[in-house]
């Protein structure tokens, strides 16, 4: 075990995979000379050179599309978008090209490509730099959608994403980059599509993604003091979705709370609730609950922003309400 910042776990994954496979390259805005806006690629430009670590112009559709062309011709590009909000500038290349070409080709083509994009509010970055767009992306077929929680997940899942033969959108949480975590000395590959039970419990299942996993664990600590035992499941990816892990847990606890930072409307919580309902309905002791970001643009002022986004307090409140409903 050792302690490491989340952003350095990303850097280690990039470095190790680039060292392992000459076909892996990194491109995006500010990834080379300054080592990334969030310092996730520091030193790679010096180590691997200009062709493999490429600073691009501010042309998201163009360089995401170039990544598709690279992936079609034998390379494994990692394309960094500075903020997940910028996915929308490259939307055609992500949605109509990258994730559909294999299908449209009848399986002739493979597109082994990773798009890394930071999500999350909490930095007063306002409405165009704070969104969590995982639900929107997950709506479309043809790509995996991965959301690491801790540094261990960030490293183990990113390495798997780079080796995956499918397009993968890898959402990093910008509030975690400088947080420190304990991780294994040698992090094993973490399979994409397998949820992880981060804390076992009997009363409430909390299914969470990304940063919400850590918030849920803290909430679970406090709830335990009140005699409410929470099982916290780190979903790790929403495509593929580990339904079985959720269903198995809810059969035990009888209560389900889903926490994800995407907009609540048509969000991850709604999808999971509907997706598992058929299998868990007769085991439920309370209606399924969800926490997301309400459907307003993310505001700038901390006085407005923090009350809006999912928090430890909201998780505690909702989880407690589920158990009260049972009484």
């Amino acid at each position: 075990m050792r302690e490491i910042m989340y952003r350095d776990a990303i850097l280690e994954a990039l470095d190790e995979e680039m060292a392992r496979d000459d076909n892996v390259l990194l491109l995006g805005e500010d990834v080379a000379f300054i080592g990334g806006n969030f310092k996730t690629s520091v030193g790679l430009y010096e180590k691997y050179g200009d062709l493999r670590v490429k600073d691009t112009p501010i042309s998201e559709a163009g360089f995401v599309g170039m990544g598709v062309g690279m992936a079609l011709t034998g390379l494994r590009p990692i394309v960094e978008l500075m903020f997940s909000d910028f996915l929308l500038i490259a939307a055609d290349q992500v949605v109509n090209q990258m994730s559909k070409i294999r299908y449209m080709s009848g399986g002739q083509a493979t597109v082994p490509m990773v798009i890394r994009a930071p999500i999350g509010a909490g930095r007063s970055s306002a409405a165009q730099h704070s969104q969590s767009l995982q639900a929107m992306v997950a709506h479309f077929p043809g790509m995996k959608v991965v959301l690491p929680s801790t540094a261990q997940e960030a490293k183990g899942l990113l390495k798997s994403a780079i080796r995956d033969d499918n397009p993968v959108i890898f959402f990093e949480h910008k509030m975690e980059y400088t947080n420190k975590f304990d991780i294994d000395d040698d992090v094993e590959l973490i399979p994409i599509g397998k949820a992880d039970v981060k804390r076992a419990g009997d009363d409430v299942t909390i299914v969470a993604t990304s940063s919400q996993v850590m918030k849920s664990l803290k909430a679970a600590d406090k709830l335990a003091a009140d005699g409410i035992s929470c099982e916290v499941i780190d979903l790790r990816s929403i495509v593929p979705l580990d339904r079985d892990a959720i269903i198995e847990s809810v059969k035990k606890t009888g209560r389900l709370l889903i926490v994800d930072e995407a907009y609540e409307r048509c969000g991850v919580g709604a999808e999971i609730a509907a997706n598992v309902m058929e299998d868990v309905f007769y085991y439920l002791d309370a209606p399924i609950a969800r926490i997301g970001t309400p459907n307003v643009p993310l505001p700038f002022s901390p006085a407005l922003e923090f009350p809006i986004i999912p928090s430890e307090d909201k998780i505690i409140e909702k989880a407690r309400a589920l158990t009260v409903a049972d009484a």
Binding site: A61, M66, G69, L72, N96, Q97, S105
Partner: peptide, 29 residues
């Protein structure tokens, strides 16, 4: 793909960066 045809494309302009990426790939390799 066996003829180097990266695809016809239903989005006007959608294929231009893809072909450009293939050109980058040629240099890279």
């Amino acid at each position: 793909m066996d003829r180097g045809i990266l695809g016809a494309n239903g989005i006007v302009g959608g294929e231009i960066p893809i072909a450009t990426g293939a050109a980058y790939s040629a240099v890279y390799r």
